[in-house]
Design a protein around this nucleic acid. Sequence first.
DNA 1: TATAATTGTCACCAAGCTGTAATATTGCCG
DNA 2: CGGCAATATTACAGCTTGGTGACAATTATA
Lengths: 229, 229
Amino acid sequence: MAANILVVEDEPAIQELLAFNLQQAGHHVISATSAERAYTLLRDTLPDLILLDWMLPGVSGIEFARRLKAEAFTKAIPIIMLTARGEEQDKISGFETGADDYITKPFSPRELLARIKAVLRRRAPQMTDDPAEIGGLRLDPGSHRVTGDGKPVELGPTEFRLLHFLMTHAERVHSRSQLLDQVWGNQVFVEDRTVDVHIRRLRRALEETGHEHLVQTVRGSGYRFSENA
Amino acid sequence: MAANILVVEDEPAIQELLAFNLQQAGHHVISATSAERAYTLLRDTLPDLILLDWMLPGVSGIEFARRLKAEAFTKAIPIIMLTARGEEQDKISGFETGADDYITKPFSPRELLARIKAVLRRRAPQMTDDPAEIGGLRLDPGSHRVTGDGKPVELGPTEFRLLHFLMTHAERVHSRSQLLDQVWGNQVFVEDRTVDVHIRRLRRALEETGHEHLVQTVRGSGYRFSENA
DNA sequence: TATAATTGTCACCAAGCTGTAATATTGCCG
DNA sequence: CGGCAATATTACAGCTTGGTGACAATTATA
């Protein structure tokens, strides 16, 4: 899977433990010991997921999470909160933070990795770098390359993201507004019909290698990526 | 799944987070910050489900829920109440008003979605994306596909919804007006006889794979989907 | 800065879908 | 077996939806 994970944790021991386990699993880890530092890091690169300690010096984890969910450019990043046992009982509403999941200390590395994987898959399968290959069409997010039966396919940025989303959510119908939310981002104001045009551009590009049939129209519902007619 | 959900919540932060998480899950969200506004919105379109905060300025959530359950046109809409922690008493009164479920803060997005799904399943099975399979006929809402013994069946949008409803409410007779309410929507003015035509179209499509006998006429009452002759 | 790509909208067309009415059948009653 | 009411079937005109090419504005690139 190999995700970029930002760990925000003030206690060095836990910090190291987390970093070790995550790296062991092939993830790339960025560390911050406070919300402020984390925020600075975020300006450079956006991670695929944030592990956030509930209790932080200065700006608390809860507060930080809320801030992340409020800002457009960090809104979509999944957050997993680290909480100490029993904290849950007393502290403020966990949901208000918008965290995607919680892990209660102490936790096993296996549980940690499992939850990370689950969150990434649930939240944004197209964010993982796993290559997708369906019906002879192959999309590799890592190298940002698409090939149909080995031959390269040229795509614009939007068509690439669109195809990536469709391929990582194949066999399902997606309405135009769902696609706008997922591919364009949910704060963008764009006409529904614009999706049609990009579907058209995607199809035209796929015609080169004869894979345009994989992008299917479901009248009255939206579009679907499927191997089957 | 993809339901229209009305969120009634006065605190903007929670409001946004709810909307965000629900949209992530593919739902369509309408928001209101007070009971009064919610009520106005209801006059235009009826949602499939209402998420209602227990604490609201002005008319309280409980009061609002009671009103919704009293009026004919909103009576059938499932309600999930959001309550603050440690107020067991609220749960009781929540149910007394006719709320279908309640969620105690804090809660994870996962729990929220699970409860929504549960309520919808109980209340309106055709709204969940669970595949239905009866007598060799299979309907998958997720991929928007129908197959008879594995072979694809072509359906128009209305026939698809009609079949979906029938299959999720099999072995029961539905009158024409019931079908109009459930499949067409309960504010549409359409002739009763129109149902006959769509039943006809559905049957014709099912003839392809020899499954037309599953859609049965009950003279004087309506139609039924059943495996048994 | 000039040039090329990319993007979102539109207008127009083709195809598909819908509701209704007219007509044909069917089932049930005596 | 008629007569009647309910249902089936068909045809169709209007409407909606999706496909497509063009275009101007914006953005990236040389």
